[in-house]
Nucleic acid binder design. Structure first.
Length: 586
DNA sequence: TGGGCCGGCGCG
DNA sequence: AAAGCGCGCCGGCCCA
């Protein structure tokens, strides 16, 4: 069963029960307290909730202690359908979708940084005149989406997985990643020196900066300051020292012999930590022992999540020691091993490749196709890995050229799969993930540039062609990996709910301040998904449930494999560690 | 002073 | 000859 929910003024709203295909199954009914009504229905029927935007509505339900099992997020699904139709980026609001259905002018979406005139729904101030959701439009747009989805293989699963992802993202933000500010501060102090006051550099960084200027003094002059934060100044300083370099990237610096190099490398590393994840970051994003970043579901074209604050997907490995389970709790850290090449094996149906991917270390299994020439350079496993990465990313220079040839000979179907995706991209066509997530079409500028007929293989037109080829080549793999990860996440979330102790039902609450119950309402002592990073999840769980959580992760990974690839022989093993702190996971 | 681009590097 | 995929965020730097 599905129920459409529309926010009305003053915390009220409208519900309407729907059949699976979106046909109304009962009249719409107004409810005075939408949160309470949703909680009641969730308890009674656990429907799939049909609403405009989980990101906007669900946090308020969570505030009231209400969790729901399933939803259909109209905006996210609209985005997916538009993308599939080659209309990437068109407005996705219910109002826009409704206008498209009626052939009327389509209103633009609100820029994401502009706060919505906050719905009415859950609004504390009933006096405020915010526009309410329109239940009629919601029902009509949903029905149209269901008709479209029914004609697209895999899309029903994609829509459900994307919507479940939105629920998880909101819940993870609310629950937060356990984060020890004390550990974080201790690490910063250990590496950088005490926290400085006013915008000063920490002691250790200032010391390095001074020594860097000194190291350049013989060529740049004794009184010249070289700001290590300025690539331009560094380039100039090296040029003065007779060492012209194309950039100040770490791998370039490592190749030259100059006393400033080790200082610069150390400075870069520490400065990065200080500016990106230092004390200011700690103050901003960690509170109450939890990191609460803003996740953006579907924020990457491939279906990966992005963040719009908190940098949760770029947390440096050294900081993992600050991620500490609560006393009596544990972190179940689970990582999909070699996900993308396994996805390629399953996508391509390459028999030889799939057999190699059936278990264990994929690269090692492939390595007998490559030979180990002893001394120096890559071993056979390293060659296998480089060949695969080159195939999936569109690289292939130097040694990789030979390795790609080996890959092509031994695993022709896998090789051809990504080659075909690259050709499609170069021809301006669209490519799709397993479940139907679709890459954006090329821009008008790209079409103009590449239609000029320059087939010399050189010049900007050829570069643009190859660039799009690399993009679509990678898209099919990365986006299908994202499909798999979303399916895993949804499955795991459902399985964790079952592990939770039965919720304590609280009857008749109509206040947003009191927990309003709900089938999967917040229960202390329940395992929670607290982190998701492309191919890795962390569950924070009472230590006594860690074994069950581990089993749930394995089961979810297998379910995701089955949902995407049916009876493929390719395995998707999870590497799982039960630890007290994230840093101990591997 | 604020916006936007760039170099560089963190994560996958 | 050189080049691989996807992000977010920071400081420097240029410009209005």
């Amino acid at each position: 069963m599905r129920i459409a929910a529309a926010a009305g003024p003053g915390g009220g709203g409208t519900l309407r029960t729907l059949a699976e295909d979106g046909t109304p199954a009962a009249p719409a009914r107004a409810v005075p307290d939408l949160v309470a009504a949703i909680a009641d229905q969730e308890r009674a029927a656990a429907p799939r909730w049909v609403w405009p935007s989980t990101a906007r509505l669900y946090p308020r339900l969570l505030d009231a202690g209400v969790r729901v099992a399933r939803c259909h997020d109209l905006e996210l699904v609209e985005s997916l359908l538009l993308g599939h139709a080659g209309r990437y980026g068109e407005p996705r609001s219910v109002a826009a979708a409704w206008a498209r259905l009626r052939g009327e002018p389509v209103p633009p979406d609100r820029p994401p940084d502009e706060p919505a005139p906050q719905p009415s729904l859950f609004d504390d101030d009933p006096e405020r005149d915010a526009p309410a959701d329109d239940i009629g439009r919601i029902v009509a747009v949903h029905a149209a989406q269901q008709r479209a989805i029914a004609g697209l293989d895999g899309f029903a699963l994609l829509a459900a997985a994307e919507s479940a992802g939105a629920l998880v993202a909101a819940e993870m933000r609310r629950d937060g990643l356990p984060w020890s500010a004390a550990e974080h501060d201790a690490l910063l102090t250990e590496l950088l020196g005490p926290r400085p006051t006013g915008g000063l550099r920490p002691r250790r960084l200032q010391d390095l900066a001074d020594r860097i200027s000194a190291a350049f003094a013989p060529s740049s002059g004794p009184h010249t300051h070289v700001n290590p934060d300025s690539p331009a100044q560094i380039l100039k300083a090296f040029a003065s020292a007779g060492l012209p370099i194309p950039s100040t990237r770490a791998h370039v610096l490592k190749r030259i012999d100059h006393p400033a190099v080790p200082l610069l490398l150390e400075y870069k590393e520490l400065s990065r930590l200080h500016t990106a994840h230092g004390w200011a970051w700690l103050d901003t994003w960690v509170s109450g022992g939890r990191l609460r970043p803003e996740y953006v579901v579907g924020g990457v074209v491939s279906g990966r999540w992005a963040t719009s604050g908190g940098g949760a997907l770029q947390i440096p490995r050294v900081l993992r020691r600050a991620v500490v389970a609560d006393p009596g709790w544990a972190l179940v850290v689970a990582d999909a091993a070699q996900l993308e090449p396994r996805v390629l094996a399953a996508l391509a149906g390459d028999r030889a490749f799939a057999d190699a991917a059936a278990h264990g270390d994929l690269y090692a299994a492939l390595s007998d196709a490559f030979h180990d020439d002893g001394a120096g350079g890559l071993d056979a496993r390293g060659k296998a890995k480089l060949a695969l990465l080159s195939a999936m990313y569109g690289g292939g220079t130097g040694e990789a050229v030979q390795l790609l040839a080996v890959l092509k000979r031994r695993f022709p179907d896998a090789f051809e799969y990504v080659e075909a995706a690259a050709r499609a991209g170069e021809n301006g066509r669209l490519v799709r993930s397993r479940l139907g997530r679709t890459c954006p079409p090329p821009s008008a500028g790209w079409r103009e540039l590449t239609s000029a007929g320059d087939d010399s293989g050189r010049g900007t037109a050829a570069q643009a062609l190859r660039s799009r080829g690399r993009f679509t080549r990678n898209f099919v793999v990365q986006a299908t990996a994202a499909d798999w990860a979303l399916a895993l996440l949804g499955s795991l979330r459902r399985r964790l709910t079952v592990l939770q102790p039965p919720p304590t039902a609280i009857q008749g609450s109509s206040s947003a301040r009191r927990p309003a119950g709900g089938t999967a309402s917040a229960a202390p002592g329940a395992p929670r998904l607290v982190f998701f990073q492309h191919d890795e999840v962390i569950v924070h769980t009472p230590a006594g449930l860690a074994a069950e959580v581990t089993a749930a992760v394995h089961a979810a990974a297998d379910e995701a494999r089955r949902l995407l690839f049916g009876d493929t022989p390719v395995a998707f093993p999870m590497e799982i560690a039960v630890v007290g702190r994230y840093a101990d996971a591997k």
